[in-house]
Structure formats: C-alpha cells, structure tokens
C-alpha cells in the first residue's frame, strides 16, 4: 500500500491528534491544525480518530498509489482528484495501484488532511506520529514531506471495502469561508484589559496576518487596549489569545510554545480550533463572541456527536454491502 510522492506540496507533514504528557517539559502537543477534520477523515476510512494523517496547506501533494487503499480528504483548501477525476470531499474514496492522487488547491479553507485506511506509517516518537518541525521530532523523519519520499500504511494491504463511499452528511460538515465568528471564553487575565479592552476585542473585525503559521495566528487590522508590562511566564494552552504590547492579538495554534509571558484576553473554545485554523492567512477575517465555559462544553459535545452520525448515516449503506 505504498504511495510515491511526486510533488510534496508546500507544507505537507504527518500529523495526528498530538503528543500528550510533555508540555510541562516545554514540548508542545502539536498535531493537526483541524482536529475535527482529522477525526472525520480517519473514521471514514475505518481508523481510530488518532491515526496519522497527511496535512498540507498552500499547495497539495501529488501521489502515485502502488496498491489499493481507501483515502478520505477532509478539511479545507483542497479538492481531491484521482486520475484527473474530481472526487467528493468528506468521503471514503477507493484507489487502485497505479492511480494518480492529487490534492488541488480550492478557495475555501486552508488546511487539508488526507487519511488512508490503516493510517500513515511513521514511527511513533514519544507516543505520537505528529511532526514537530521546530525540534525535528516525529512524523516523516522530523521534517516536511519531499518529492521522492515513499509513504506507507500501518496496515499494509488493508482495504475495508464496505466503507468505500462512506461520507459525512453535507449538513454536518464545517463551512469554511473567509470570515468566521469564533467563540471564546474570556480570561484568564481580564483585569489587564478592563471593559474597554474586552469591548474592543469583541466588537472588532480582525484580519488574519500573513505571518501566521502552525505556532500561532497573528491578528491585525485592529488592536486591543491593555496595561503595559508583562506577566510572569506561565502555562499557555492551545487556543489562548495573547496580546503583546502592540495590542495585536495572537491565537495559539497546534505548535504553540507551552508557556508565555503576555497577558491572555481569552481562549478559543476547542470546538473552534479548526475553524480558526481554516481562515486563510492574508485573506481571512475573524470576529469573536464570548460564551461561558458550560456553553462551550455543550458546543463541544454537539460537535463530537456529529462523528457518531457518520456511523449511523452509513450503517444501512454498509449493511447493503
């Protein structure tokens, strides 16, 4: 079930749901930028949610299949072509040996994930297959994919035929657009911003700056008033919105530093981590809306319940064989 990489794309790396248990030692969890897309893609092809996927942005990979497999392209920014034929997204697609698999850029969204039946096979490092580029850890030899690389599935030769054609119903797919309303929980440093700072933060439309990457998304075009100075360095989770002295917020993404010294005005709720990631740097715009922690947990439960819909919607399809 090998795949030969003819073109790697611009920023293609192996990722999974992240590396847990090392953040107190300074190693970020990392993992996919859009966790919901990763979970869906894996379920469609019969994997655990945490199996490794290929993630890319900007320009997608061009692969040659050496043997049959199920593939699913989820997330944003790309369309799947097999031997030049457009294939449906959020759907398990069967490919045969000798076929050309291409992920071509499309306008909505920014990060694509490609899952394969069995999961992409790279050695787990510290419990995860995610690539952490800054330290050259994990993934495909600690680096981005290059043309000429060979990729394999963990389960060579495994094709769960009954899942071919399985899909996430269109009504349950995330909508990626150039502007998003992102939900946050305010805090923990509310006193640093006061009512004025919070009002500015919740009423402004920010642009996603071009200097955004897997570590953080830098927001420009509006600023937030804050006290001067720094806080003592402290733990900083994914989704935290730091505000440096210039008032332009930074949203912490998958490979963010585990600690930071700028005050945090809010944290993006985990259901929206992927929705922020899918805003295109240089083009995307974002506004924020405050929710309570309890509301955020309810939103997350509803999002995770969509995953179960994959099994329910496709059950009759699979039983027909």
């Amino acid at each position: 079930m090998a795949f030969w990489v003819e073109q790697a794309g611009w920023f293609s790396s192996i990722q999974d749901l992240g590396r847990t248990g090392y953040e107190h030692l300074g190693l970020p969890a990392g993992g996919v930028m859009d966790p919901f897309a990763c979970r869906v893609a894996n379920r469609l092809v019969g994997n655990e949610d945490s199996a490794a996927v290929l993630e890319f942005s900007g320009a997608g990979p061009l692969l040659w299949a050496d043997a049959p497999a199920l593939l699913a392209l989820c997330g944003g920014g790309f369309t799947l072509y097999v031997d030049g034929m457009e294939m449906p997204l959020w759907t398990a697609v069967r490919v045969r040996g000798g076929q050309r698999v291409e992920c071509r850029p499309s306008p909505a969204g920014f990060w694509g994930v490609l899952a394969i039946s069995g999961g992409w096979d790279v050695p787990p490092v510290l419990g995860s297959r995610s690539t952490f580029l800054k330290a050259g850890v994990g993934g495909f030899q600690g680096r981005l994919l290059h043309s000429g690389d060979w990729l394999f599935s963990v389960r060579e030769g495994w094709v769960p035929e009954e899942r071919a054609g399985a899909m996430l119903p269109a009504s349950l797919r995330p909508e990626y657009s150039l502007e998003a309303l992102i939900r946050v929980v305010l805090g923990p440093q509310r006193a640093w911003f006061g009512e004025d700072g919070e009002r500015q933060f919740l009423s402004a439309t920010f642009q996603v700056g071009v200097q955004s990457d897997r570590l953080g998304y830098r927001l420009t075009g509006a600023s937030v008033t804050r006290r001067s100075g720094e806080i003592l360095s402290e733990g900083m989770p994914r989704g935290a919105v730091q505000v440096p002295p210039d008032g332009n917020p930074i949203v912490m993404m998958a490979d963010h530093p585990t600690t930071g010294g700028y005050p945090k005005i809010a944290g993006v709720i985990c259901a929206d981590w992927g929705r922020v990631a899918q805003l295109r740097p240089g083009e995307g715009r974002v506004r924020f809306e405050a929710v309570t922690v309890d509301q955020a947990h309810q939103i997350y439960r509803e999002l995770m319940a969509r995953l179960n819909a994959i099994e329910q919607e496709n059950l009759s399809f699979w039983m027909r064989g």
Binding site: H24, A29, L232, E234, P237, M304
Partner: peptide, 20 residues
C-alpha cells in the same frame, strides 16, 4: 497536562470526561 509557571499551574482537562 499540568504545566507549572512561576506562580501558577495550568491544568488541562477533557470536558467530555471530566466534570469541571
């Protein structure tokens, strides 16, 4: 994750498993 700062501890949790 339990991530120490100088004077604070960041405590992460899975909201689907842990009651706040």
């Amino acid at each position: 994750e339990c991530v120490p700062g100088y004077a604070t501890l960041r405590v992460d949790y899975d909201p689907l498993v842990t009651s706040l």
